[in-house]
Nucleic acid binder design. Sequence first.
DNA 1: ATGCATGCAAAGAGTTTGCAAGACA
DNA 2: TGTCTTGCAAACTCTTTGCATGCAT
Lengths: 146, 146
Amino acid sequence: MSANAELALQSLRQAEVRITPPRRVVIEVLASQEHLTAPEVVEAVQKRAPAISRASVYRTLDLLTRLGICRIATMGLPIVRYTLTPTGNHHHLVCSNCLRAFEFDSCGLSALVPELEARTGFRISGHLLEAYGLCADCQQAESVTE
Amino acid sequence: MSANAELALQSLRQAEVRITPPRRVVIEVLASQEHLTAPEVVEAVQKRAPAISRASVYRTLDLLTRLGICRIATMGLPIVRYTLTPTGNHHHLVCSNCLRAFEFDSCGLSALVPELEARTGFRISGHLLEAYGLCADCQQAESVTE
DNA sequence: ATGCATGCAAAGAGTTTGCAAGACA
DNA sequence: TGTCTTGCAAACTCTTTGCATGCAT
């Protein structure tokens, strides 16, 4: 079991919800791959444990999302994708042309959080940043065509 | 017709796609309200022009998204929402408890874009930032309960 | 022991697609 | 005029729900 999965289970315990086989397996699946759609999670879960129902997967994804254990990102497309976010933060760079997505770590935003909290009264626990643009490859292809 | 709608139409012309009544109406609807779901756009479009089909709305939303004229955000929930983004940028602060969402303007990120471009080779055209946390009200409610 | 969570299956939404007809440039 | 876009309607996929059963605590 991965460290991220362990962290997620701990969060479940803290939230005082029961730890059941379906929940365990959904977490394992999410820990094994990022940016999965709900149907993809269903498929992966049932590959590991065919008896687990679609409904439980949906209910678990909903639970994990409400608890902030996983986060939703779309990469610019109208498709919801789930990812475990132990740090609470998540950053992508998405190419508008080829639609490839890249992760990046530091976004320099942590420094801005205190100011944002002061201004808004929020206590901020995490963020998602998606930047859109043209990747190096597509810029090149574009300049050739023009 | 709002300024944002005009901008969107100009982008369509630049992209050399035809400007048709369904496309116009979808843009007007998106210009009139942010964060609409696809079914909400369908409803609003058909209120203005009942003859426009659901399929055209979906096709138009897809087109606008691919052209970067509108952007997708989820506010942390597994529901895709469309918003016209003339600047290319978009910022929310979402309360994990009451699920209310607030917009904010400057995110201090523009300063970081050049560095990110240099590091990744991307040419960045816009971004979405969603921060999650507890709003002031929910923090208070929480401290009362505890 | 008890109340929460599950599986099942059906219903309900939401989205996509093929094709003939129509309209933009 | 030619090509792109539309509307229709059906098919499809995805998601939610009620309820009896089972299980985590």
